[in-house]
Amino acid sequence: MSNRISVICITGTREKLQMGAMVASVGAATGADVTVFLSMNALPYFVKDSTEVAPSEGEMGRVMDAEPGVPDYKELFQQAVELGDAKILPCPMVMDVLKLSKDDLMDEVGPVTGLTKFLSDAEGSQVFTF
């Protein structure tokens, strides 16, 4: 049975998005079946062409922002999809509240997936929440 990883991103800070992106990209590249569920404050950072940078929680985020050698979390999520067939699923509740449609989000994100389907898919997988 293949390894399955579920990453739940709900926090809109640099550190948590970075860690979620790292788990998703490395997991997907290593052959795991990766599903990322985006909700709450994390989702707005996946709006297409948005240049808004997630604020730091602490010192680590500020140091990472200044270090060009740290991979960009958006690129890592894209690599998770391109290199490892990860799925990045936006939460319909947040999309309704923010009046977003699927076309407003990065191309790698979708389809819009409700909690019922996500929970069913996540059953029995490793779950990481950021």
Binding site: M22, S25, V26, A29, E67, P68, G69, V70, P71, L76, Q79, L83
Partner: peptide
């Protein structure tokens, strides 16, 4: 060189493809 985890692994995988 000078990229941090998981940069080197992702670079390798990109080229490996």
């Amino acid at each position: 060189r000078d990229t941090y985890c998981p940069g080197p692994l992702m670079e390798l995988i990109t080229h490996m493809k």
